[in-house]
């Protein structure tokens, strides 16, 4: 067992789930939000030659996905270290 006590174990899982929820909210907003649900509203704005909503749906959301995963890797490694459950 890696955890010092049960409190730590619960705190670790709570921290992890909280991080996941935050990142999944961003995931939902950039793809389903900006790319689909709000696409008409965003299309009134222009980003160079793109309508903004169109750009999110065919480019922007994908860039955000990549950044989200790499941020998750970074943040998760931090959490693992803090609780002493990282891999040696």
């Amino acid at each position: 067992m890696g955890f010092k006590n049960d409190n730590d174990k619960q705190a670790y899982w709570r921290t992890t789930v909280l991080l996941l929820l935050k990142l999944l909210v961003i995931w939902f907003v950039v793809s389903f939000g900006c790319g689909i649900l709000l696409v008409d509203q965003l299309n009134q704005f222009q980003l160079f030659g793109f309508k903004l909503g169109f750009w999110f749906s065919q480019q922007g959301a994908i860039y955000c996905f990549v950044l989200l995963i790499f941020y998750y890797v970074y943040a998760m490694n931090k959490i693992d270290q803090r609780f002493g459950v990282d891999e040696e």
Binding site: L20, L23, S57, Q58, I69
Partner: peptide
């Protein structure tokens, strides 16, 4: 996508966004 235009988005988002779920919720 060339023929569907904006509607082609379903493939672009659908076939990439799943990796976020995979990375965060399943793979590790």
């Amino acid at each position: 996508i060339s023929f569907m235009g904006y509607d082609g988005t379903v493939y672009l988002l659908g076939w990439t966004g799943g990796y976020v779920l995979l990375a965060l919720c399943l793979a590790p």
